[in-house]
């Protein structure tokens, strides 16, 4: 019983992190129809930003998070303007390869600048936990969960209640109609790309104390984020959250209850992913995204 409770708690806490990790990827696809293959690198840069803020300036990752997010967002918007905008109308494969190439460059820039050493910030809260009898609730993971929740709620409010956010949704639903309504679509794309990168880098800032930071951490997270996004439905914010928790529960359950489960967990998520693709390719809550 206590193990089951522990399993649930672990899954919920992991689900929060997964949601934040995947949401930028999902939203980005909804608006620009581009799968950001460099999303993992945005996470990685956020993680390094928070790490160095902590090591060099003594700033807690949670405090440096907004600054890091703004910096990464600005840099990504420039990247979008400079390179990605040029392939918006190109075939999917060109987009994928371009972003993949950018990811490859960013990874190796990080490896050159900061070496391949694994790093992590050990804030006081990263090493302590609440204990309720045998139940363990790590402070770091709770803080990560809360941060993720705040950011996602903020994103949701922005999308629904701000002028710019509504425009973003309009573009996501129908780019052409949005143009006719006088929305500057190309500017919206840039803003949306920047915001999605900011969400990715926020995930990174949290990872700086929760996980291990390396120049190559991004790909692993990208693949997982894919699974989540497809599970939930590309472009859907609630769907992504649902997908994130579904994956977190599946992985954690397998890790707890299957022999060598920790090794199988990732494989099981891919089986789930394949099943969803076969049964309901739009994902759990996928909207009518053109299947192309």
């Amino acid at each position: 019983m206590s193990l089951l409770l522990q399993c649930l708690v672990d899954a919920i806490l992991l689900g929060g992190l997964y949601s934040l990790m995947a949401i930028g990827l999902s939203l980005g696809f909804g608006v620009t129809r581009i799968i950001n293959f460099a999303h993992g690198e945005m996470i990685m840069f956020g993680a390094y930003g928070a790490y160095f803020a902590s090591i060099l300036l003594g700033v807690d990752p949670l405090l440096s998070l907004p600054v890091v997010a703004v910096l990464v967002a600005a840099a990504s918007a420039l990247l979008f303007k400079g390179l990605i905008e040029k392939v918006l109308d190109a075939p999917h494969i060109n987009q994928i390869l371009l972003l993949f190439g950018i990811g490859l460059v960013l990874q190796n820039v990080a490896a050159i600048l900061w070496t391949g050493d694994a790093r992590s910030v050990s804030t006081p809260y990263a090493l302590t936990a609440f204990e309720f009898d045998t139940l363990l609730v790590p402070h770091g993971r709770v803080i990560a969960f809360v941060t993720a929740a705040i950011l996602i709620v903020a994103l949701f409010c922005w999308l629904h209640f701000s002028e710019l956010g509504r425009a973003t949704r309009a573009v996501a639903e129908n780019g052409q109609a949005a143009t006719l309504m006088g929305i500057n679509v190309s500017r919206m794309y840039m803003i949306s790309f920047g915001i999605n990168a900011a969400l990715g880098s926020a995930t990174g800032a949290i990872s700086a104390f929760l996980l291990t930071v390396t120049p190559f951490m991004g790909f692993h997270m990208l693949v997982k984020a894919f699974a989540i996004v497809v599970l939930g439905g590309l472009g859907s914010v609630p769907g992504t959250i649902l997908g994130a928790f579904a994956l977190a529960f599946a992985e954690t359950w397998v890790s707890y209850y299957v022999p060598d489960g920790s090794g199988w967990a990732e494989g099981v998520s891919f089986v789930v992913l394949l099943c969803v693709l076969i049964i309901r390719p739009k994902g759990i809550l996928g909207q009518a995204v053109a299947v192309h």
Binding site: L3, L136, L210, M217, S255, Y256, G261, S262
Partner: peptide, 20 residues
């Protein structure tokens, strides 16, 4: 003898099993 995945984001399941 507990196996962990390389690059795993959460080792707690394994640790909880070991605790027992």
């Amino acid at each position: 003898t507990e196996l962990v995945r390389e690059g795993s984001a959460d080792l707690n399941p394994v640790l909880q099993r070991i605790r027992q």
